[in-house]
Nucleic acid binder design. Sequence first.
DNA 1: TCGCTGTCGTTCGGTGCCAAACGTTACGCT
DNA 2: AGCGTAACGTTTGGCACCGAACGACAGCGA
Lengths: 172, 172
Amino acid sequence: MGGEAERRTTRLDDLIQVERDMLDKVGDLPIDLEALVLVSNLHRTVAAIRREFEKTVLAEVRLSWTAFTVMWVLWIWGESETRELANEANVTKGTLTGVVDTLEKRGLVERRRRSRDRRLVAVKLTDAGTLLIADVFPRFNVEEQRVASLLTSRQRTAMVEGLRRILRELGT
Amino acid sequence: MGGEAERRTTRLDDLIQVERDMLDKVGDLPIDLEALVLVSNLHRTVAAIRREFEKTVLAEVRLSWTAFTVMWVLWIWGESETRELANEANVTKGTLTGVVDTLEKRGLVERRRRSRDRRLVAVKLTDAGTLLIADVFPRFNVEEQRVASLLTSRQRTAMVEGLRRILRELGT
DNA sequence: TCGCTGTCGTTCGGTGCCAAACGTTACGCT
DNA sequence: AGCGTAACGTTTGGCACCGAACGACAGCGA
């Protein structure tokens, strides 16, 4: 809470509480505060969204965020091989093995070893899995719309473009 | 890949590959694609940032993202009680117990039971911990600047404001 | 003073997540 | 044909993460 009352064009009461706390404490260190706020708010936001979704839409069908993502990819893409699926769901092969194990136990997906090349394993939705994802995805998207609707059109555009830029740089 | 070649003002080659794949497949479903892209890119981006940081700056000092956050909070705030610390680091109390266990084993933080109210536990940095975070934090911030510098000034502002908006709504 | 009630940090069970090591299978080269 | 190399999915070890259940403790009211 230094003497510098007005920082840039941002009014103090626009900040969330966590940021105010931070500025009070770190305001005089030689660091880039905007970058710090950007990255830390990105993390906070994503965690909040994930928790929210897992507590509402996904809880109703007992799916974790990642399990949902995997099923969604399978729904859109159809039968896929493990490494493609892992890549698309943004996890490692090792992680995917576990997730598919779980989904397979619930009878939502099934594995099939390729006879052409026996190193490969194809994963696909079962009928039950297809029913489930077709039911839950629209409701999931409604929640996404709720989040997106909090932003102005300009903010949405800027944010999506910014995210794409970062992803491209860090390697999708 | 429907007939609608030009969607909004976004040129196709602005999209990252994953999005192009998605549009090909889901383009005719009655859902809000912009919201879907926003939320999924938020997740992808945060995961990418986290992996990147954990592989570079944080790997050098063998800290996970969360462990780093906890130490940073302790550095800025000084000695804190468990539930405050958990809240500030954006994890549950249960998770924090584990993280503090790990840090304590490495001699970077220490616990002290409050005598005034013996339910409470105060956590603070050791000297070694203080040295470590003072060393690594500036380098961490340099990486944050690298990310932030990928965006235009307008994008940065819009993004930070948008994130604040979402956080406020979902409950910081 | 003795319970009641609520809050504290910890523990527990289950999943997610990664990197590295591993066994299996395919394939190119000699 | 047979060997080396590389790519596949799985396993392993370790931490992160959550919600729920738990025991310890403080504070209030009868």
